[in-house]
Amino acid sequence: MNKEKLLDLYRMMVQIREFENECIELAKSNATRAAVHTYIGEEAIAAGVCAHMSNQDYITSTHRGHGHCIAKGADLEKMFAELLGREGGYCKGKGGSMHIADLATGNLGANGIVGGGIPLAVGAALGIQLDNKKNFVVSFFGDGAANEGSFHEALNMASIWSLPVIFVCENNEYGISTHVSKSTNIQNIAIRAMSYGIKGVVVDGNNILEVYEETRKAVDDVVSGQGPVLLEMKTYRMSGHYFGDNQNYRTKDEVNQWKEKDPILRCEQILQKEYDLTEEDLLTIRKNIRTEVLAASEKAKLQPEPMIEDLTGDLFDQKFADIEWKSFVKAQGKG
């Protein structure tokens, strides 16, 4: 990988981390109201996967979705505004942290229901196939979602129709407090791909180079019509389930061990060893990104709340599609 490419990925990871750090600050002051699920420790996955995507390629995301949205190209001020329930947020303040969608960047939405987005990704991939386009869909979900029925129904349907969708399972070891070993009696969720006749790959989700490379191979597969791929990204949720989680289900030692495998730290080591960047170079990048993130947060805080008059708006599109109905005459002897 060339230096600029890796630096882009590094900047994206740092941007996500700094966004999440600021989210925690906002949560501390209760400005975000209910739970905020941060992506800290998993940034390499969103950054490495979405780097292969254009705005015409779609993602479905999860309750832990900030990183996916940012990597797909979301505007940080509009994201903060949504988290703060402001009119200028991505969903006009009607969605909140768990429900950011942005069709313009191909983001079909974060989803508060575990596994809820996986069938949607299959449908978007079906739409792409019906339109004979070369685009693809990525469905992000966690180890917890791999035990939902929607995961199994979706993988099977995508497989029988060879749909262009990559299922990215972010195995961060915990479904809230329950360790994956207590919920899942296999070492690698990726082997579930076998049940559906598709390719399954275990990936070190904290290694940005591996995430990038394995995703590239998967993209090649799905857009060339070879059917869906399941990528299991091994990672770790370095923060709690949400800010304020007492984390009584795991030890500090366990968390500290994973901190050594922090994907941003590992990327910095590569940049220093193999690409001649200095610690000072990296500090400057981080500082600049942090300044940008904080500026976006400050601007969002100044935005107005939604109008009360808009409470019942947006439920339905009042317009109907512009279709002119044409009779169909069946061939003789039919019907």
Partner: peptide, 10 residues
């Protein structure tokens, strides 16, 4: 979805 995403999805 339509409401939750601020009317941006049909």
């Amino acid at each position: 979805m339509r409401y939750m995403y601020g009317g941006h999805v049909n």
